Simulated scan of single mutants.
Amino acid sequence: MSPSIKVATFNVSMEADNYRTEPEAVADPRALQRHLASGRHPQIRNIAEIIQRVRPDILLLNEFDYIADPKRGVLAFQRHYLQQGQGGAAPIHFPYHYLAPVNSGVPSPYDFDGDGVASGTGGDAWGFGRYPGQYGMVLLSRFPILQEQVRTFAKFPWHRLAAPQKITRADGRDFYDASTWRALRLSSKSHWDVPVQIGEHRLHLLAAHPTPPVFDGPEGRNGARNFDEIRLWAEYIDNAPYLVDDQDRQGGLPPNRRFVILGDYNASATEGRSRPGAIEQLLHHSRINAKWVPISQGGAAHSPDNPHGASHTASWRARVDYVLPSRWGLEVRDGGVFWPAPDSPLHPLVVNRRASSDHRLVWQTLKLTHGPEGNESGT
């Protein structure tokens, strides 16, 4: 009998900006580490309760600040929050995890934001961030992670993407000089291909968090980056031979591979300010099954006059968080957005960003079909 698994993504807003007591205060990069150690932070307890109530088998957390020591980071989150029952929900444990450095907040020697000063951080970091590791990612799994087969694309140069988006000034000149453009990395955080083993089946988890397509100038550099960060996955699942990962392995994902693209992509097909066609690169891709659109009663109630409200995944009224399975090897059985209706006793968990996050957990239940991956097309 083919197994079914529940795969989820959740932008948890667990980064230091969210823990400032005053808007003018400087974010403390160690804030998350302290709160994870205490086991008492109300926002993190609510996040843990949401996860306990949905009970995914695989979960990507976006905006979980990168903490290199798992004992102080992801394992502390598990020990002090997920493995403690929250709000009457049962504890949950993920035996396996994956984390790696991200580009956000890591200083560069370049003037990426074009203000004439190479400040090293903020808009001049390899990916926007006020300190290294801000807006990081963590993957949690009940199934073994094939660590030696993980591929990351944090350092892939943007200019190497086939036909990258143009970034020009009002007079038509290139926004970046040649040396800056050659140095600029495409991924604002990172792109991960994390394979997990589910019995005899293998599943590739394609995780990312593209930059918001705003907070730039008339040149639209962030809109261009968002579009091309999304396109990187479209090229990857097309097995583009020119792609080279951080481990110097070439090519993309061959045919007949199960995969799920998941994360906060900061792009909607119907709302927001992403470039036209950005998320459609995935939603309309021939290898992706995007027919199932997760919905919630809370989202519908939050935007009662919006026909797309039920599918929104962010409090600012857009669908930007995705769980997108491959057509091959997976069958969608169920799914949803954790956004309880206003009259639900669970609604306080999502009432605002301070309660949990400005995003909602999105999940799909997937049945694994066909035989083991190697039986069809090799390992």
Rank of each mutant, 00 (worst) to 15 (best):
H312M: 14
A314P: 00
S286T: 07
P304K: 03
V293L: 03
A301F: 07
P294V: 03
P307I: 05
W292L: 01
K291Q: 02
H312A: 05
W316I: 13
I288H: 04
N306V: 06
R287G: 03
N306M: 08
A300G: 14
T313Q: 08
A314W: 03
R317N: 15
H285L: 09
S296K: 10
P307A: 09
I288F: 07
K291V: 05
K291P: 00
A310M: 07
R317L: 03
P294K: 12
P294I: 00
G299Y: 12
A318C: 12
R287Y: 02
T313G: 08
R317M: 06
W316H: 15
I295Q: 15
S286P: 09
Q297A: 07
I288A: 03
G299R: 12
W292Q: 09
S315L: 09
A301L: 08
H302E: 08
I295R: 14
V293H: 04
A318P: 02
R287K: 07
A290L: 03
W292K: 00
R317G: 04
A290S: 15
Q297E: 14
S286A: 13
R317S: 10
K291Y: 08
G299I: 13
S303H: 07
A314L: 04
H308S: 01
H312E: 11
Q297V: 01
Q297C: 02
S296D: 01
G299N: 10
Q297D: 08
H302N: 14
A314Q: 07
H284G: 10
S303L: 10
D305G: 05
S315A: 10
G298R: 15
A290P: 15
G309S: 12
Q297T: 05
A301D: 07
N289V: 06
S315C: 03
S303K: 11
H284S: 13
S315D: 15
H312Y: 14
N306L: 11
Q297M: 08
R287N: 04
A314C: 06
H285F: 08
A290H: 13
I295S: 14
P304D: 13
V293E: 13
S296H: 04
G299P: 03
A290I: 03
D305F: 06
H308P: 00
H284M: 11
H302W: 11
H302C: 06
A318I: 09
I288K: 02
V293P: 00
H285Y: 11
H284V: 12
H285M: 06
W316L: 15
N289L: 06
I295W: 05
N289P: 01
V293C: 00
H308W: 12
A290N: 10
G298K: 14
S303G: 10
G299Q: 12
S303I: 02
H302A: 12
K291H: 07
H302D: 10
A314F: 04
H308M: 08
